[in-house]
Amino acid sequence: MDASPASITILLVDDDRIHSRILEARLKGQGYQVLIANSGESALEQARQSPPTLILCDWLMDGMDGLEVCRAIKQDSALQATHFILLTSRSRVEDRVIGLDCGADDFLSKPVDPDELLARVRSGIRLHQANECLQLLADELRSQKERMDQELAEAADYVRSLLPVQVRGSVVVDSRFVPSHELGGDSFDYFWLDDDHFVMYLADASGHGLAAAFPSISLHNQLRSRSLSVDLHDPAEVLKALNSGFQMERHQGRYLTLWYGVYQSSSRTLRFASAGHPPALIWSEDGGTPTSWLRGQGMAVGLFEDATYITESHAVDHGACLLVYSDGLYEVARSDAPMGALPEFVDLVEDCRDLLRADDGLDRLLERIQTANGDVRFTDDYSVIRAIFP
């Protein structure tokens, strides 16, 4: 960003009127606009009224000296980008260190050499203009980030609007969805396919941002609208059909993990399949039996076109509780401990089995998880579904 000399304003601060006139003549001879101040106090007043591009200031002056002027200029947010050159007859390194500590950008030794004066001024103007460019760039990046944050917040609200509400009846289902700052790829749903079959699934697309949210939203729409050309009662066939239509080379290298289950109320049987997703957890009401891990077998959707999936079955006891979740719930980066892992999370769920049956069970579980992680900020979306089978 080159500017003509006429657009450059230089404030010359010196209580020696003869020396000031000599420097003024040199600078005006190059076309610069020059303002004169014969004291530190008047220099600050002029600078605040009309911020200059560059200040040339004598170190030794009566009243406010050059160091005090420099310090005041650099502490003023409206003036701190102004290039400040101290004029001094001092040549010791210690003196220059003091000047630099006060915020001076450069030095000119007195008596001032005319050629060096102009060279230092040109250099200072270039640095000032470079700083202005960087500031404009920073402002633009800040503005873009604000727009992106707003778009991500709106996208998170949209994803949240797609998610199901609490269900009560022969199956009692509640859920929570907490998007990360960048928004991730979590999506889930649960609904009755017919009078006897209840579907539950949770998907998690790799990555963050809108690009991760789109695949999950697409999957959600296909399943909710029942437009997928496959029997939704068969978990393995559902995963196979989704994998066939979603290959990572066509989606910027993204893939999805997915747990899909169908509960038949008449037989109290849960049929499920998994595509690389963390295992669902289920336990009985009496608490006498250990928690079962409903792992399923199969690679994440989108990794391999010929991936195979297997439907497995699990008998559901009266009053059993099921937990389906995304890995963002336990893969938390902690400053004072290794990243959270699945076994640690399962142990915490074991401790909360009774709490999870309460109406606010999910909230209490999430509070326990947050406390266990030292209240660190979660870096990924996390979602969880709790189903109770009365």
Score class of each variant (00 low, 15 high):
70 C>I: 04
144 Q>I: 05
66 G>H: 07
369 I>N: 03
180 S>L: 09
147 R>G: 03
74 K>W: 11
206 S>P: 08
46 Q>D: 08
107 F>T: 01
44 L>S: 00
104 A>Y: 09
30 Q>P: 07
325 Y>S: 05
342 L>Q: 08
195 D>S: 15
115 D>S: 12
178 V>S: 12
112 V>W: 02
241 A>D: 05
90 R>T: 01
274 S>P: 09
218 S>I: 08
150 Q>C: 12
37 A>N: 02
239 L>E: 05
257 T>R: 00
123 S>P: 09
126 R>T: 03
353 R>I: 05
27 L>S: 03
127 L>K: 03
370 Q>V: 02
190 Y>I: 01
240 K>C: 13
37 A>D: 06
137 L>F: 05
177 F>K: 06
137 L>V: 07
255 Y>W: 15
224 R>W: 03
51 P>A: 08
288 G>K: 10
81 A>K: 06
181 H>S: 10
255 Y>C: 03
117 L>R: 10
146 E>F: 04
333 A>R: 14
171 V>H: 04
368 R>I: 01
253 G>M: 10
390 P>W: 10
138 A>H: 12
111 P>V: 14
40 G>K: 01
256 L>W: 06
340 G>N: 03
329 L>Y: 06
184 G>T: 07
44 L>G: 02
379 T>E: 15
220 H>T: 00
164 P>L: 13
105 D>Y: 02
234 D>L: 09
192 W>Q: 02
120 R>C: 10
160 R>H: 07
270 L>P: 02
60 L>H: 11
137 L>Q: 13
325 Y>Q: 02
175 S>P: 10
61 M>G: 05
251 H>A: 11
147 R>T: 09
215 P>S: 07
27 L>G: 08
182 E>A: 14
93 V>L: 11
214 F>D: 08
312 E>Q: 15
101 D>Y: 06
225 S>T: 14
295 R>I: 15
287 G>D: 06
301 V>N: 06
197 H>E: 02
359 D>Q: 14
319 G>T: 09
141 L>I: 01
58 D>F: 00
193 L>D: 01
290 P>L: 11
152 L>W: 07
223 L>Q: 07
113 D>M: 04
239 L>Q: 03
97 V>R: 11
68 E>W: 01
390 P>E: 04
364 R>Q: 08
305 E>Y: 09
163 L>W: 04
306 D>H: 11
173 V>T: 04
165 V>H: 07
149 D>K: 03
327 D>V: 13
297 Q>L: 14
37 A>P: 10
171 V>K: 04
251 H>K: 12
23 L>W: 01
21 R>P: 02
70 C>G: 04
382 Y>M: 00
161 S>T: 11
65 D>A: 05
221 N>Y: 07
47 A>V: 07
138 A>I: 02
152 L>K: 00
148 M>C: 06
244 S>G: 14
100 L>I: 10
295 R>K: 15
226 R>Q: 15
93 V>D: 08
317 D>S: 15
272 F>A: 00
162 L>C: 14
49 Q>G: 13
316 V>G: 00
177 F>G: 03
279 P>I: 13
152 L>R: 11
292 S>M: 08
153 A>Q: 13
280 A>Q: 04
